[in-house]
Simulated scan of single mutants.
Amino acid sequence: MTDQLPHMLRADAQDNRDRVMDAAKALFSEHGLAVTMREIARRAGVGPATLYRRFPTKQALVEEAFAQELRSCRDIVDDGAADPDPWLGFCSVIERTVVLNVRNHGFVEAFMSEDREAGGFAVHRATLFRKVAALARRAQAAGGLRRDFVIDDVVLVLVAARGLASLPLDTRPTAARRYAALAIDGFRASTAHGRLPRAPKLGAAVTTGRAKKPS
Rank of each mutant, 00 (worst) to 15 (best):
A139I: 05
A141C: 00
G106T: 03
A181I: 06
G47W: 11
P84L: 00
L167Q: 11
A67W: 02
R198H: 11
H193K: 14
E109Y: 02
R147S: 12
F149A: 11
G144I: 04
M112N: 12
G120P: 08
Y52D: 03
G144V: 03
D170S: 07
A141Q: 13
P214H: 12
Q14T: 06
N101H: 06
A199D: 08
E109R: 11
V62Y: 02
N104F: 05
A199L: 08
A60M: 12
H7D: 13
I151N: 12
I76D: 05
A181W: 02
V155I: 15
G120R: 13
G143M: 07
W87R: 02
A141Y: 01
H193R: 15
V62T: 06
H7I: 14
V93Q: 04
H124F: 09
N101I: 08
D148R: 10
T97N: 04
E30H: 08
A81T: 09
R38V: 14
A192R: 09
A81E: 13
S215N: 11
V159L: 10
L9N: 07
R130Q: 14
G186C: 03
D185L: 05
T171N: 08
N101P: 00
R162W: 08
R42C: 05
D78M: 11
D83L: 00
R138G: 01
H193F: 07
V206A: 11
C91L: 02
L145C: 03
G120V: 08
A142M: 03
N101V: 07
E39P: 01
G209S: 04
R103Q: 15
P173C: 05
Q14V: 01
R147V: 09
F129N: 07
A133P: 01
E109C: 04
R17F: 00
T207Q: 13
S166D: 11
P6N: 10
R195M: 05
A181T: 13
F55V: 07
A41R: 14
P168R: 06
M37S: 14
P200M: 15
F66P: 01
G106R: 05
A142N: 03
L33D: 01
L158Y: 09
R17I: 08
D85I: 04
R96T: 00
A181D: 06
R178P: 00
E30T: 08
Q4E: 13
L156I: 00
T50A: 15
A199K: 13
V62P: 01
H124D: 15
R74P: 00
V99G: 06
P84H: 07
L156H: 12
E95Y: 00
R137C: 09
A60K: 09
V157H: 13
L135V: 11
M8W: 06
T57S: 15
G194Y: 02
L100C: 10
A26C: 06
A204F: 12
T127W: 10
H105K: 15
H105R: 15
D78C: 04
A65G: 01
S190C: 08
A136L: 10
Q14C: 07
M112E: 06
P173L: 02
Y52L: 15
